[in-house]
């Protein structure tokens, strides 16, 4: 959106009204319950526009706020954002410090006046390996969680610091610990689901990655491999990602769900059970049915054929080759 347009009076009001109307429309159809966001491209944006890295991250946060607004208007129950990866600790110490400061600052804002959270009733939850964080940051995060814990409308999961392999390992550890304590503890896929950080969230329906990178980068791997989850990659950098693009993704998701029953669109996967069945039938089938192996176009023709053969076999009864099928076909008629 051009910068000058935002300066018009009433622009913000217009934008929020349009968001509300769009939300009301899309809510009447299928809506994803749980959305994952990989906010990639803040630094690339900063470099391309010759602004400071810190400023790029700041714009990314603003972009996140406006995207979340439209998601909650559309009735999305939970959004999970990839704020900080455990791998990000490898970045330069300046940047890690900047990111931590930014997080501290933003969470302080939330705890002090909490505009977004109060307006939308958003509850904040911190997912991830929080033991890696500095105590002062952790304290602020817990405060933010505490203050918003009574909000019921939607949940924002902030992955800080998070990697999916770490999550799976933590889950496995938790299960192993539990099984040493409880006898006959049943372990299956749903058990692992219950031990993941996202245990309270509905299954992931949509995962969005910005800046045209076709990788999951260790984010919600376990949750997103399911066929029910649709992964969308877009070329725009995160600070440029606007509600308009988000609404296009949402309506496309809704369309696929409505039209095909699957958020990914149509599938070409066949069912091999049919194959086994048809093979078995081939084996069991007697000679008269052998000519209709693959495609049973018209079953009535078959009967006519056997009648024909009957009459044929009556005529040339001494031909041994013909008598065998005629007997079988007569049996077939009796059983049919």
């Amino acid at each position: 959106m051009s910068q000058w347009m935002t300066t018009f009076p009433g622009y913000a009001w217009l934008l929020s009204t349009v968001k509300k109307i769009f939300g009301n429309i899309i809510k009447t159809g299928p809506v994803p319950r749980h959305i994952g966001l990989i906010m990639d491209g803040n630094r690339r944006y900063a470099r391309a526009h010759n602004i400071e890295l810190k400023e790029g991250h700041n714009m990314g946060f603003e972009s996140m706020a406006s995207i979340l607004e439209i998601l909650y208007e559309c009735g999305v129950e939970q959004a999970t954002v990839y704020a900080f990866s455990i791998e990000n600790f490898k970045r330069s110490s300046y940047e890690v410090k900047w990111l931590m400061d930014l997080a501290k600052q933003k969470f302080q804002q939330i705890t002090q006046h909490g505009e977004l959270c109060e307006q939308y009733g958003v509850q904040i939850r911190i997912l991830g390996n929080t033991s890696l964080l500095q105590p002062d940051v952790l304290k602020l995060l817990r405060q933010a969680e505490d203050i918003t814990k009574n909000n019921k409308r939607a949940i924002l999961n902030v992955c800080f610091p998070y990697t999916s392999r770490d999550e799976m390992t933590t889950a496995i550890k938790g299960i192993v610990k539990k099984s040493t304590e409880v006898d006959d503890f049943i372990i299956d896929e749903s058990t692992i689901d219950k031990f993941l950080y996202t245990k309270d969230a509905p299954p992931l329906d949509l995962l969005i990655r910005t800046s045209g990178t076709y990788r999951l980068s260790d984010f919600l791997l376990w949750q997103s491999v399911s066929s029910q989850c649709s992964i969308v990659v877009i070329e725009t950098l995160w600070p440029q990602f606007n509600p308009y693009e988000m609404s296009k993704i949402l309506i496309n998701w809704s369309f696929n769900k409505y039209w095909y029953g699957n958020s990914n669109g149509y599938t070409v996967r066949g069912n091999p059970d049919n194959l086994r069945l048809s093979n078995d039938e081939d084996l069991e089938d007697d000679e008269p049915n052998a000519f209709t192996t693959s495609y049973n176009r018209n079953p009535i023709v078959e009967d006519e054929d056997s009648f024909d053969r009957d009459s044929d076999s009556d005529r040339v009864i001494d031909n041994e080759n013909d008598t065998v099928p005629s007997e079988e076909s007569s049996i077939n008629i009796k059983t049919a």
């Binding site: 392999r165 990788r215 992964i231 599938t267």
Partner: peptide
């Protein structure tokens, strides 16, 4: 080789940095 990005329960541990096409 699918009409869309559908991972079909591909082993989740093994797609950490895998490029999709």
């Amino acid at each position: 080789f699918n009409p869309n990005l559908d991972l079909q329960d591909y082993p989740p541990w093994h797609i950490r940095l895998t490029e999709f096409y």
